[in-house]
Design a protein around this nucleic acid. Structure first.
Length: 242
DNA sequence: ACTCGTGTTAGCTG
DNA sequence: TCAGCTAACACGAG
């Protein structure tokens, strides 16, 4: 599920219902999800603490933890990345433990994630930072949008939607975009993020239902084209995004 | 049976 | 060293 809007929903869920509850147990047996930690490491680091605050940058969530009796110093941050299929499940105090955090297990949970490796959050990035982001290089504009170290939070669907809204081909080299196109893309991305947050996720974009073979652009009826761009399945309007 | 994917990242190349 | 690209990861859905 998760792109930035879905991850913000997850963060907000944790903020509203999981803070200031004592951690009494941790199931960290799945070492693929907890890599590079070893079994028991997260449990030992977290049991007895509380989550004190929960933050998000792009698709990465992390929560501060409290000190414990005898050692009031804050504990490690708990980092959560939902990957492709992760979700947060919260039960009432004393309720039954929920099963399954991430079916596909491409997400991860780790201590003290390096958040500084991420670019500015896509919702926070300024127009000037965005211009700089696209100012030089030969990489396809979509690939650059997906680079979390440059701008954090844009996933495959949001990228296709924003480029479609801005009428820019996903394959255009970033260095060849005109200033007007860059501004258009910035506005389109911000509008796409807002709309996704309001409507309930990245999948609610206008062009998303037309990302399949034989589909036609909902704006002008031209054929929707497909290719792999930036390593991801990409759809665009053959007429407006030439 | 087989291909694909709302994400990351190690490893390769020029 | 950096920019850019590819394969690999896991596993459910179509």
């Amino acid at each position: 599920m998760p792109e930035l809007p879905e991850v913000e929903t997850a963060r907000s869920l944790i903020a509203g219902r999981a803070l200031h509850r004592t951690i009494v147990g941790v199931d960290d047996a799945d070492t693929y999800v907890t890599r590079p930690h070893t079994p028991g490491q997260l449990r030992d680091a977290l049991v007895g603490r509380e989550l004190t605050a929960v933050m998000r940058r792009g698709k990465t969530i992390w929560a501060g933890t409290s000190g414990v009796d005898g050692d009031p110093a804050p504990g490690p941050d708990l980092g959560i990345h939902l990957g492709m299929s992760g979700r947060i499940v919260i039960t009432a105090p004393g309720g039954e433990a929920a099963e399954g955090f991430d079916k596909r297990r491409l997400g991860r949970v780790r201590l003290d994630p390096d958040v500084t490796a991420l670019g500015p959050d896509a919702e926070e990035i300024t127009a000037e930072e965005f211009r700089h982001l696209l100012s030089k290089g030969t990489i396809a504009v979509k690939a650059r949008l997906l680079d979390q170290s440059r701008i954090a939070g844009v996933g495959n669907l949001l990228a296709d939607e924003a480029l479609w809204q801005a009428r820019i081909s996903p394959a255009r080299p970033v260095g060849r975009l005109s200033p007007a196109e860059v501004d258009r893309l910035y506005q389109a991305l911000q509008a796409t993020l807002k709309s996704a947050a309001t409507q309930g996720g990245a999948h609610t974009g206008e062009v998303i239902p037309f990302r399949h073979a034989g589909a036609r652009c909902p704006r002008d009826g031209a054929e929707m084209k497909h290719a792999v761009v930036g390593g991801r399945s990409t759809w665009w309007c053959s007429a407006e995004q030439g």
